[in-house]
Design a protein around this nucleic acid. Sequence first.
DNA 1: TATAGAAAGTCAACATGTTTACTATCAATA
DNA 2: TATTGATAGTAAACATGTTGACTTTCTATA
Lengths: 151, 151
Amino acid sequence: MGISYRSDLSADENVLMALVRAAETFKRVVSNIFRKHGLSFPQYNMLRVLDASKDGQSRITHVSRIMLVPVANMTGIARRLEKNGFIVRKSDPTDERVTILEITAKGKRTLTYIEKERDDYMHSMLKGFAEHEKHTLLENLKLLIKNSRKI
Amino acid sequence: MGISYRSDLSADENVLMALVRAAETFKRVVSNIFRKHGLSFPQYNMLRVLDASKDGQSRITHVSRIMLVPVANMTGIARRLEKNGFIVRKSDPTDERVTILEITAKGKRTLTYIEKERDDYMHSMLKGFAEHEKHTLLENLKLLIKNSRKI
DNA sequence: TATAGAAAGTCAACATGTTTACTATCAATA
DNA sequence: TATTGATAGTAAACATGTTGACTTTCTATA
């Protein structure tokens, strides 16, 4: 099944299709972990960014730039996170245009609950890789990202 | 920007986040190519599967299994492809439950138009990789996929 | 041969991504 | 200072992904 589909793919395409599949499989499994705690994949990432920010807060545009996701997507993600009590939204008194997002105690607690299970999964996904192989893989992936940016 | 976010990530997380970013960047750029010809990323993949199938046709469930995408997603993708004349839908006389998808002449033509630009892009994305490095990268990605399946 | 269960699809509800349009505010400058 | 352009964010329209419910049709078997 699928053999006739793959047989005429070039070496380049094989690599890049495997890249997409590996990423999607990874996202699917960690999403299952997040979902048990009421979070989607991008919601979790937004929480992580806020948790690592000074005072647990940051403006939407800043989060957008770190996540490499258009600002337009942030609105809905933040709205749902706020609805479920993981963050609060405040306006910046010094600039009325700005919306500041801040992680709540519930948000921080949830990240803690997720942490171990997530780390275990990531570790098992990289089973069979020596440290230097992880490093080489990381460099390869960075080169792919760099190459695609230049196009 | 983003430094404080990244600084406390483990080596495992660095690799897997780079994996997701590389895949998303790749998808974004090839999607631009496809869009010029009226196709989305999954629509293109569905066309590719049909084009590589016997007589240019296959049942929805089969395409779903190859693309590793739930059948429920296939319905809408096929409907939009049919609406724009890239495929037709037929029912299987031997099994009334089955929907058969078949690529049209327009669909095949469109794949031909896309082919070169897409190959050029994939080649430039893998610039700087020797053949044996591509091979190693592919093996690494396959191992990631295999590892994540076992969880 | 009824009937229960499996298989193939569709549909609905929701979250997300993408693009475009829009509002509100701020900043620069004529 | 009034106007113009840049910034920050939201909203709407669409395509996709995910899950679960549902219909239709087969298939196995009691």
